[in-house]
Design a protein around this nucleic acid. Structure first.
Lengths: 156, 156
DNA sequence: CCGATTTTGTTGAGCGTTCAACTATCGGCG
DNA sequence: CGCCGATAGTTGAACGCTCAACAAAATCGG
């Protein structure tokens, strides 16, 4: 306390607000499209994607939570709902009796396959189409830097 | 239909995932900090900020919704809660009997003033400290481009 | 080997957002 | 004027997320 706050200068203000506006609008748009076309929020789509990418090696709940950047609680609730929809299955982990393993069902895979083209199209339209190749590269570097920075001094 | 999906190439994949991870982590961190330190989500903080910036000219609900990038419904619910907390007041608009005007209360202003330094510090720590000045500039341009692009073909 | 600690995953309550439906008012056009 | 479509804002239900509390199993330390 007593330490003077270093307020944002006008440029930083502008950057911060633009980032807020853009990322919120982007996420909202994708979420809305995915909800409309596939009946699931973006977070659930991501879970299915991760599961589809590890078809042989089944994923532990924790691992899946880490991959999707969600809390255990969030994933647990999500898994319950995804299981109720018949898109995933949960099995006991053979090597750790506390563990649960998530598996994509055939129905889940089919649903994902049906949703993917439209979603990718959305990402392209809303993000990549608007940026120059150089900007895409810049965005990648910035995002990777931020992600690293945030996971270091991260969730606390 | 019948049109081949243009999937993301590996670079785009990487960019998209990094962006997802970073922006989610950033928002989650700021939201958590603001909830902990000021007892409000980031969305509500933004509403108070916008109100504090128009101390004389009171803001219509719609205008406020536009400024904060939220739906009318969202703002309406938020306003109800902010009013219950005693941070804002809603008054009838003199020129349009459908309209409502949102006003920041003294308590609301005090709460905002108390929350601001910590929040700004968070934005600095999590975002600006991690990036070079050049990257901040790039991020501004990218975000402004995206924001414009999204609000054009936008909410549909 | 046993107790303490940590890790894994789930649960329920509370909250914020979405979506669709609804009321009330405004603005324009015949 | 009187009607009709647009606009402003609210409401309630459904849903997803957060947080804290919890149960069960693994791991650590003596």
């Amino acid at each position: 306390m007593g330490v003077m706050t270093r307020w944002l200068d006008p440029d930083e203000q502008r950057t911060w607000r633009a980032f807020l506006t853009a990322s919120r609008a982007l996420m909202d748009a994708l979420d809305r499209e995915l909800q409309r076309d596939a009946g699931m929020p973006h977070a659930y789509y991501e879970i299915l994607v991760r599961l589809s990418e590890a078809p042989d090696r089944p994923l532990r709940m924790s691992e899946l939570a880490e991959l999707t950047g969600s809390s255990r609680s969030r994933l647990s609730h999500a898994a319950a709902r995804l299981e109720a929809s018949g898109w995933i299955r949960r099995e006991d982990c053979p090597t750790d009796r506390r563990g649960q393993i998530a598996v994509l069902t055939d129905t889940g895979f089919a649903t994902l396959a049906a949703a993917a083209p439209g979603h990718v199209e959305g990402v392209r339209r809303h993000l990549f189409d608007a940026l120059s190749p150089a900007q895409v590269d810049q965005l990648r570097r910035i995002s990777e830097t931020l992600a690293e920075h945030l996971t270091d001094s991260g969730p606390n």
